[in-house]
Design a protein around this nucleic acid. Structure first.
Length: 424
RNA sequence: GGAGAGGUGCUCGAGUGGUUGAAGAGGCACGCCUGGAAAGCGUGUAUACCCCUAAAGGGUAUCGAGAGUUCGAAUCUCUUCCUCUCCGCCA
């Protein structure tokens, strides 16, 4: 969430920038500011009362020690009044703070100045693109048919075992998954990221830390018996490593990578969007996460985007990078680049990665801070993450784009990992 | 799941009602000492919020979390979470 300091110190700018995210913040920001004034006022009064109490308590203690019982008892009477007032003020403070917090979590992050105006996906800017879109013959088929033809992925079997959106990968289909995961992790490590194997279940605190809770609770599978949540992305456990942590400036940027299975309930979805591998309840993804200092975070974002680009290039997939417009960005992001690869048989672009800088929005909730080297002051870190990459749609594009009469060709980079060069 | 022990600052560790934000030790930082280093000596070493702010300064809260008793709680009571040990189960 946004910091109170940011809101109160640059109210007009905050309102202006929120507008780009199609968020009318005028009224809500005014409300925050007046609540904050009230909060400070109440705390000042409360603190004064408590200070008086502490003073009196010490005096009473001294009086008892000196055996002056009568005077001590007299002083006790005075405390009752102060105590009552303090209790009232304290309750008031808690109410105000809770209200303030509940409002703050409804305000989205401010978009970066470079975010284009726009409301919907069509308003996103194509930043750049690469790779050649293959010319497939008339008999080209979508990946779900290829998966069946070569017995790579069994969607119906997944339905039997679990339900829709939980495919079973078999044979070369399973080996391709494993190859991609290894390739992505090895590449990330070579690029300087520390490999992490996180838990797949997280507690509620972690859910709040990265912002899945409370508003997006429905997106996550909830293991109610133990009150744990299945992770929708490795971002959640990996970023939460740094919850309530004060890093040294010299440790930044932190660069972590993790593979995990990801679980998403994805309530509203329909039609061709959900065919085959396009949208699943369980899928595999390698994530990259960075924690950085503010003045370097956009450099980090650029490096992350370039890194993801190197992956799709190595996989020989046609790709494009979108700079998301204000209206299409996620709630928490300040700047997001989406990667799409072209799925030649479906004749559509598929999102395979989303690389974002959250600036201090997520860090504020996480309380992830760092100590500056020069003046030792503590301030919020910036957090960033990106998929590098999500497997299902990469697999869809690989299968479709590389289909030939003889079988499905495996890109050169992947062959050492798969152990085969063609699926036939 | 059953039984027991325990959660204190960067770490270890003392502390069973009153100048304890917290002894002591270690670590770390800076300074002195040294030709250099070690040892030694000295100083410092939490976070959040509020007031005041140019700076300095002052206040409040925090000893897993929450509630209670009390003029006063790290210390007493209750609730809760977590960790460890033994048993059971088990990849």
């Amino acid at each position: 969430m946004l910091t109170l300091k940011n809101i109160t110190e640059s109210k007009d700018e905050v309102i202006r920038r929120l507008a780009k995210k199609c968020f009318n913040g005028k009224e809500i920001i005014e409300n925050v500011i007046s609540l904050d004034e009230k909060r400070r006022n109440v705390q000042t009064q409360l603190d004064a009362g408590l200070a008086e109490m502490n003073k009196l308590s010490k005096e009473i203690g001294d009086l008892f020690k000196q055996g002056k019982q009568a005077e001590a008892n007299e002083a006790k009477v005075k405390t009752t009044e102060i105590k009552e007032a303090s209790t009232k003020l304290s309750d008031e403070l808690k109410t105000i703070e809770a209200e303030l917090n509940s409002i703050l979590v409804t305000i989205p992050n401010l978009p970066h100045e470079s975010v284009p105006e726009g409301r919907v996906a069509e308003d996103n800017l194509v930043e750049r693109s690469g790779g050649a879109i293959p010319e497939l013959g008339k008999d080209a088929v979508p990946h779900w048919e290829l998966a069946k033809r070569y017995d790579l992925i069994d969607f119906e079997l997944g339905v039997k075992i679990t339900g829709a959106g939980f495919p079973v990968y078999k044979g070369k289909g399973a080996r391709l998954q494993r190859a991609l995961i290894s390739f992505f992790l090895d590449s990330a490590r070579e690029a300087g990221y520390l490999e992490i194997q996180p838990p797949y279940l997280v507690n509620a605190d972690s859910g709040y830390g990265t912002g899945q809770l409370p508003d997006k609770e429905g997106q996550m599978y909830h293991a109610t018996a133990d009150d744990l949540y299945l992770i929708p992305t490795a971002e959640v456990p990996v970023t939460n490593i740094y919850r309530d942590v004060i890093l040294n400036e010299s440790e930044l940027p932190v660069m972590n990578t993790a593979y995990s299975a990801c679980f998403r309930r994805e309530a509203g979805s329909y039609g061709k969007d959900v065919r085959g591998l396009n949208r699943l309840h369980q899928f595999d993804k390698v994530e990259i996460v960075r924690i950085d200092k503010p003045e370097h975070s956009y450099q980090s974002l650029t490096e992350m985007v370039d890194y993801v680009q190197s992956l799709v290039d190595k996989l020989e997939l046609p790709w494009r990078i979108l700079r998301l417009c204000g209206g299409d960005m996620s709630f928490t992001s300040a700047l997001t680049f989406d990667f799409e690869v072209y799925s030649a048989a479906q004749q559509r672009w598929l999102e395979v990665s989303s690389v974002s800088n959250f600036e201090s929005y997520q860090a504020n909730r996480l309380k992830c801070r760092y100590r500056k080297a020069d003046d030792k002051k503590i301030q919020l870190c910036h957090t960033l993450n990106g998929s590098a990459l999500a497997l299902p749609r990469i697999v869809a594009a690989l299968l479709e784009n590389n289909q030939t009469p003889d079988g499905i060709r495996i890109p050169k980079t992947l062959i050492p990992y798969t152990g085969f060069d063609i699926i036939d």
